[in-house]
Design a binder for these strands. Sequence first.
DNA 1: ATAAAGGCTCCGGTTACTGGAAGGTCAAGA
DNA 2: TCTTGACCTTCCAGTAACCGGAGCCTTTAT
Lengths: 134, 134
Amino acid sequence: MNISDVAERTGLPVKTVRYYEEIGLITPARAANGYRHFSDTDLHSLAFIGRARSLGFGVEACRSLLRLYDDPARASADVRRLAQTHLEEIDRKIAELEQMRATLSHLVAACAGNDRPDCPILADLAAMSPSARG
Amino acid sequence: MNISDVAERTGLPVKTVRYYEEIGLITPARAANGYRHFSDTDLHSLAFIGRARSLGFGVEACRSLLRLYDDPARASADVRRLAQTHLEEIDRKIAELEQMRATLSHLVAACAGNDRPDCPILADLAAMSPSARG
DNA sequence: ATAAAGGCTCCGGTTACTGGAAGGTCAAGA
DNA sequence: TCTTGACCTTCCAGTAACCGGAGCCTTTAT
């Protein structure tokens, strides 16, 4: 299979597939003309990576997961630990975004949104903290 | 005030303050020796930016907000629109993370996390979609 | 024969900084 | 006066995970 075939079948952009090769996640064979030739294993790895990426794993975590997948002697505890760590990171991000959302939605609701200059949003941003006020 | 003073008072790293000058968010004066000299206005702008950044606004949005803040003839509707757009972006991100979280926590819960190789997490990642199975 | 489609590499840009190197400046103490 | 150490400066490189495009080669179809 050529690169556009695997791109279509994995849903990954062609550029991304080349990138994954560049960073050593996959190592497709090369045809005589220099074209990449993807095996079913390559295709499978790419699909695996794509799925992991869609769950928010970073590419280095994907590399680890792929290694674990390829290791018949792996311990599921290692996989679980990776996923657990990532899950905690997601929870942190959600909490941060929820915090922003709370403040922001409050401010948006308080803003008249008309042609007058008065604006609680700007007022909030401009309110200096004691330390900055000196 | 020198750069470390404003850094301390705004809570922003020195490097970040220099960066904000580089991209034109602030334009501090320079002393004869080349040192940046920050006015109260600069300090205030930096605090404003820091607060906006903490609400998740991108630096370009910060630039817009700062411009609006400096424009006495602004319409609060413009500010509100900016904040509303950002709020929607936050909601999109939260939804995406919640989706990841749901799948991931399900998988983590299903994984024994012992020294055996069987792992539902890897099984999920390895499950090929029909399009890829082709 | 030619043109479109697909492939290749390499370079630069994205976001918002961060770290570090090399070197000038300033205030305080011996 | 000299030195030490804390500041300050600029410039360069790197981070995450790609994306866009230039310039060039190969294959496929007409």
